[in-house]
Structure formats: structure tokens, C-alpha cells
Design a protein around this nucleic acid. Structure first.
Lengths: 150, 150
DNA sequence: AATATTTAGCTATATGCAATAGCAATCTGG
DNA sequence: CCAGATTGCTATTGCATATAGCTAAATATT
């Protein structure tokens, strides 16, 4: 007793997760699963998620400073430093002095190529993600999520 | 120039985030924001998110082993150890020997009180979360999220 | 019954990401 | 001109997660 019915199957007790109805829990699990997946895809082009999002953000711009990027992506300046250093030593970005204290972060040629690869990976990822969601719920996801932080 | 129009306001460039339409990005940002908020709430009862979810999961059960908890919540056994140790040294759980190698993880009296506090905190959190989402999107969030990992 | 495999729980360690505190150089508004 | 804000940085810490490898106990195989 104390155990329901279907326990002789190999179903790993996922259907009776008593927390799955909680929005916060579902959000955490979904985000973890999706970010693990995206992380795996980006591995193949040797980038991490935060690095890839920086490349996407600055592509086609020449006026984004470290602090501007950080303010859009909500990354503290202390954490931007090693991030940009990695991108810089991979030859993907250049720092162009704007004035005595500010540098614009711009894509190098190599960085533009990489950004195109990122776009290919994320396009596939995003459409796979949406395809998993029943059509009836699909158009509601992004607006609902954006209402939570924007 | 090169800067749009509304820049004299104190809006921190959030409305022109060019990544916000991407489901994966929105998911990550929303989850980060919500988990930071929940983490803050749980601070007041001195628990972390994963600890709180363990308390909720095992409340009312006496047959959950460490590996059963880990398999439901998707936590590796290596990571369960320090988690359960913290709960144990806080006096919230007891380990009841089942056989030579298995222990059931059960709530102590103190743990049951704590679980009630957790439920109070998360109830408030979950309803606040839902309240932020426009009503038209609200019923779609949990099903859409669960489609991504269940 | 003897052996092999699987399972439960653990140690040690590494990674990704974010937070805090504090600092030096530079820019800017009154 | 100068006080205060901004830019970019160092150093350190915390959390959640991951891998590799271990011991001991339970279970399956022959």
C-alpha cells in the first residue's frame, strides 16, 4: 500500500510528480531542461549560452559598450569581464576605444561568422522548442513569459 | 545619433531588447527572475529552492529514499548528499533505515512545521506569479511548460 | 552456493553563472 | 573646477549542477 497502481512499469515515476502543477516549479524544470539542451547544441560551436546571446545582441551594431550589453542582458559588469575576455581571446570581438574610459564591443569578421552559426543553432533550437508545445498553447508562451520579467 | 528616440527616460533599454521574442531567451529570463524572487522569499525561512521542493515532496510520505527523491526531482545522487545533510543537520528530516543499504527520508516534527511554512511561501509566490500574467495567457503557461520536459 | 551485476549512497572535484565589495581612471553637470 | 556619476576592472563567494570513482549491500545468474 501507499503506492498507487502502475508501478511495475519502467515509467520512472514522472507522471506522479506532485509538484508539476506549480507554475514556478514547471518554469524551473522547463528552463533547466531547455538550457541544458541549448548548451549542448552550442557546445558544438564552442560557445556558452551567455556568450552566444552577446554575439546575437551586438551583431550589426557598433555602439554597444560593455555596460550597455550588461544592462540589456542583465549581466553585472563584474561578470561581463571574463565573458568578454573569452570572446576576445577567441578572436570573435574587438574592443574599439570610444573615449578615455569607454570601449565599443564589436564583432570581428570571425565573430560575424560565429554569429551566423549561432543564429543557425538557435533557429533550430527555438523551432524545436515551439514544436513540442501543443499548438493551442504555443502562441501564449512568449507573452506569458515576458510578462514575468519585462 | 545611432540612438533611437526614448532615451531621456530612465527606462533601462529594456523595451528594445532584440532577443525578447525568442522563446528560449524569454524562458531563461523569466525563470531567472522568478527563481531569484522565490529564493528571496525562502531566505526568510532559511531554505533554498531545492531544499524546499524536497520538503514539499516528502511531506506525508514515509517511503521516499534519497534516490527516489532524486529521480522525481531530477537531482543526481552526488548532489542529494549535501542537500540532505543540510536538511538533516537543521533537524528537518530523519533517515530511517529500510534495509542494509536504503534509508527512507522522512520529515521530523520540525520538518513538518517547516513544510507548512514552505507551503505558505510558495502559495503566495505562485499566485503572485500567475497574477502578473495577462488572463488570456494564464491557463496556457503550465501546460506549455510541462510539454517541454515531462 | 559462488559469482557477477545492479543499486544506494557517498567523496572529491569541476563548471557555469551570478552576487558582493571595493578600486582606479575618466567623464560631466552645476 | 570639482563633486559625483560612470566605466571597467579584481577578488572572492555562493548556488546548482556535473563527472568520476568508491564501498557496501542487494539481486540475478549459473
Amino acid at each position: 500500500m501507499a503506492r498507487p497502481q502502475n508501478r511495475n512499469q519502467n515509467t520512472p515515476a514522472v507522471s506522479d510528480d506532485p509538484l508539476a502543477h506549480l507554475p514556478g516549479y514547471a518554469l524551473r524544470r522547463a528552463a533547466n531542461a531547455m538550457m541544458a539542451e541549448l548548451g549542448g547544441l552550442l557546445d558544438s560551436i564552442d560557445l556558452r549560452i551567455s556568450e552566444a546571446s552577446i554575439l546575437l545582441l551586438i551583431d550589426g551594431r557598433d555602439d554597444m559598450t560593455s555596460s550597455a550589453i550588461g544592462s540589456v542582458l542583465d549581466i553585472r559588469s563584474a561578470n561581463m569581464v571574463p565573458l568578454l575576455n573569452r570572446l576576445s581571446s577567441a578572436g570573435l570581438i574587438d574592443k574599439v576605444r570610444i573615449d578615455g574610459k569607454s570601449m565599443a564591443i564589436v564583432l570581428s569578421d570571425k565573430g560575424r561568422e560565429k554569429a551566423a552559426e549561432v543564429r543557425a543553432v538557435t533557429d533550430k533550437f527555438e523551432s524545436d522548442l515551439l514544436r513540442r508545445i501543443p499548438a493551442a498553447h504555443r502562441p501564449h508562451l512568449v507573452p506569458a513569459l515576458n510578462a514575468l520579467w519585462r
